[in-house]
């Protein structure tokens, strides 16, 4: 099996006190725990440091580990017969050195509190497979309609020499329609294989939905900008709006203001069971940037004939 320097993994010297070991683990756990860390390779680093802590925090396991001696990280080694006679419990045949398919942590599994947390190949009872987690990036159309996707994951597994390696894991899955950005899905039984009759783990998918050039997604609802010319907002009009389910005709009433929202019921994302979001058209008043002489004259005439003051509330007389 390959040697791992548990002290170096936790950034410690041999002879570190129990308190130092605990503090080092807690410091690194805050940094690399998958639930809170954004660090690159956090998952892999956390598994390594967790294995190191599992051994060093227990006095008996630590003593056994220290008595193995010191090797270069990754160096092939074999526990001495004396070590095996003294420390190896519940593993048959170790006196003859049958350690080829053991990982380092499993050497200490029979000591003190029982099993180590990771990687043993000679499980003594059924063990459930690991759950896997993956990020799935979908286009807006895939999220809206649902999609069958082929996932090619790279998952961490213990190899026969006791090291951690990435192996491919391929899953074909059907994503239901109407999934949203940030949502989590579960694919039962598509995680790691269980051992000795234990159940397979599950695969959890974290959904990310790509931006759409037109629609903005908020939960199950969609937002789309509705640009109107000033005369359309003032006089009212009828417009055609695109929706993922096809174009719809929208009546804009007279006196529509910028920022106003029109709700198109049931035109958002939809999923099985009848749950559907809505689409909201957000009014923006767009003005022509270039007008000819006649149009300019008409605008001046309109300005002179109107008492409308959009900044009345900012008048110093009012705010005093």
């Amino acid at each position: 099996m390959r040697y791992k320097d548990y002290y170096a993994t936790l950034g410690l010297k041999r002879g570190a006190s129990a308190d130092e070991i605990k503090a080092a683990y807690r410091r690194l756990a805050r940094k690399y725990h998958p639930d809170v860390s954004k660090e690159k390779d956090a998952e892999e680093k956390f598994k390594e440091m967790a294995e190191a802590y599992e051994t060093l925090k227990d006095p008996e396991k630590r003593a056994a580990y220290d008595q193995l001696g010191s090797y270069a990280p990754g160096q092939e080694f074999r526990p001495s017969p004396d070590w095996s006679r003294h420390y190896s419990r519940g593993h048959d045949g170790q006196a003859e050195g049958g350690f080829e398919d053991f990982d380092l942590s499993s050497l200490f599994a029979g000591l003190a509190g029982g099993r180590g947390r990771a990687g043993a190949h000679r499980a003594e009872r059924p063990s459930a497979g690991s759950d896997y987690e993956a990020v799935v990036r979908l286009s807006f159309e895939q999220a809206f309609h649902g999609a069958e996707i082929d996932l090619e994951l790279s998952v961490l597994e213990w190899d026969a020499e006791g090291g951690m390696r990435r192996v491919p894991h391929r899953v074909k899955t059907r994503i239901p329609r109407g999934v949203t950005d940030g949502e989590k899905l579960r694919v039962p039984g598509k995680g790691g294989k269980g051992t000795r009759g234990g159940p397979d783990g599950d695969l959890y998918l974290n959904i990310e939905v790509a931006e759409h050039p037109l629609y903005r997604v908020s939960g199950m609802d969609l937002y789309v900008d509705l640009p109107l010319a000033p005369w359309e907002a003032i006089l009212g009009t009828s417009v055609t709006l695109p929706t993922p389910g096809g174009p719809v005709r929208l009546k804009v009433p007279p006196g529509t203001r910028a920022g106003q929202q029109f709700r198109l019921a049931g035109r958002g994302l939809a999923r099985g069971g009848g749950t559907a979001g809505h689409m909201y058209a957000l009014v923006r008043i767009e003005v022509p940037t270039v007008v000819d002489d006649r149009q300019g004259a008409l605008y001046r005439q309109l300005a002179e004939s109107s008492n409308f003051n959009p900044r009345a509330h900012l008048d110093p007389e009012v705010t005093r």
Binding site: E148, R170, V171, K172, T173, R174, I175, P176, V179, E183, K184, L185, R186, V187, P188, G189, K190, L205, R271, G273, T275
Partner: peptide, 14 residues
Amino acid sequence: IAPVADAVCLDAIA
């Protein structure tokens, strides 16, 4: 051909 596994939404309905 590997069968297609259904992904299940972990939402308020399930």
